[in-house]
Design a protein around this nucleic acid. Structure first.
Length: 412
DNA sequence: CGAGTAATAT
DNA sequence: TATATTACTC
């Protein structure tokens, strides 16, 4: 179960041995891991201060350096956070509101704000994930800045939305949109964004990275079986999806992982997706494995028809290897245009307006994926994935559901 | 001013 | 690094 309390232990706080290492930020992973205890564990500020004080007598009582208590954003806590966002719905995802909804003792607005900020950029990773993933920090120069400016999520102040280049920039600020568009940005913004960003897919290249879906409540992992993606559903609202950021070649390799488990709150429903792929010029040299998850987080959308057009897709997958992304080679998916039409079955369903297709490879050792917010996030390792699940190249795509698929793979 | 966010500090 | 704090805007 999820706990309601903040795990606000201070970095060294929980540890019996106070920072012997340093007086300030012993906030190391190890440390964290050690203190990874339960969620209910709250260490009060006072205690913390006291401890510190004892430890270092020269500290002023009310000053206490500067990080008072740190909230450890555990997966559960984060989940709760996310849930709050969801609950709040459009226009209300502001720290203050979030705090209220979360109703976690000790959790402050600023803390939430900080977390929110982090999440906006998709930079947050759950502790669990942190453990497993090693670094990857490599390159992220160019796109980074873009991303920053472009990734807004949750309710944010709409203020400068001036020149939004185009959809690439990103989708709605608030991922949950309603069909009506009254989407509100309660704080006075207009819903122009919706207009600006009609439903569409986007594909972006990115570098190999580990999929975070498991740890990220944003995502619901889903399985894909024969072209049908199963999603976990939570609410009628479209949830936020994230995409990974990428930049270069997509390295691919694939495998599919049948269900993964995570989700703190998952109830799901299965929706059907129809994918129509049109792949032109595709070459695939496939190596092998690794499992990506396809993450589509989303809910309540019942039917999507996806038309995916991938042009010029070349995929070379190396063998996977972990930790070395280099030997995996270039996959380039130059373009994937996906058009998708959705059928909104229910009135209050929201629809995705911005979906990102990406592929990712799961290479151990690399993680750093940043995801960007989008309404839909599809993580394909590479086109092979499609073919595997949807149909082999050259084969007809399964059309089991009512829609007709436009086409089928034309290979060169 | 309070609140939200970007940027920065720790 | 993750989170807290600051500085700024609105």
């Amino acid at each position: 179960m999820i706990v309601n309390d903040v795990d606000t232990h201070n970095m060294d706080g929980d540890n019996e041995e106070l920072s012997k290492e340093t007086n300030d930020v012993p906030n190391t992973e190890e440390h964290r891991n050690n203190i990874h205890e339960v969620e209910d564990n709250i260490v009060s500020n006072e205690k913390y201060k006291r401890r510190r004080k004892n430890n270092r007598k020269d500290i002023k009582k009310d000053k206490v350096i500067k990080q008072k208590d740190c909230v450890k954003w555990t997966a559960d806590l984060h989940a709760k956070f996310m849930k709050s966002l969801e609950q709040l719905g459009e226009g209300k995802c502001y720290p203050k509101d979030i705090v209220e909804v979360m109703d976690v003792p000790g959790l402050t607005r600023m803390q939430v704000a900080s977390h929110l900020q982090k999440c906006r950029f998709n930079n947050w990773r759950s502790p669990e994930e942190r453990k497993s993933s090693r670094r990857t920090s490599g390159q992220e120069s160019l796109s980074e800045s873009q991303q920053k400016s472009s990734n807004r999520k949750y309710g944010t102040m709409p203020r400068l939305q001036n020149n939004i280049p185009n959809q690439i920039q990103r989708g709605l600020e608030f991922p949950f949109s309603t069909p009506n568009t009254s989407n509100t940005f309660a704080r006075g913004e207009s819903s122009i964004q919706e207009k600006l960003y009609p439903p569409q897919f986007q594909v972006q290249p990115h570098y190999p990275s580990i999929d975070n879906s498991l740890n990220n409540p944003f995502f619901s992992v889903q399985n894909s079986v024969g072209g049908v993606l199963q999603q976990h559903q939570h609410r009628p609202l479209l949830e936020m999806f994230r995409s990974q950021r990428l930049q270069d070649p997509i390295v691919g390799n694939i495998i599919h992982r049948p269900g993964s488990a995570f989700n703190t709150w998952n109830h799901h429903t299965q929706s059907e997706y129809n994918l129509d792929l049109n792949v032109v010029h595709k070459k695939t040299h496939l190596g092998s494995k690794i499992m990506p998850d396809i993450g589509v987080g989303n809910r309540a959308i019942n039917d999507y028809n996806l038309n995916v057009n991938a042009g010029n897709t070349i995929t070379y997958s190396g063998s996977t290897t972990m930790s070395d992304a280099e030997n995996v080679t270039s996959d380039e998916v130059e373009t994937i245009n996906a058009n998708f039409q959705q059928h909104i079955a229910e009135p209050n369903m929201s629809y995705p307006s911005n979906i990102i297709l990406t592929n990712k490879s799961d290479i151990e050792g690399s993680d750093s994926n940043e995801r960007e917010d989008c309404d839909g996030y599809y993580n394909f390792n590479h086109m092979g994935y499609f073919f595997q699940n949807i149909g082999p190249p050259g084969a007809n795509l399964p059309n089991s559901y009512d829609s007709e698929f436009d086409q089928v793979y034309s290979d060169d």
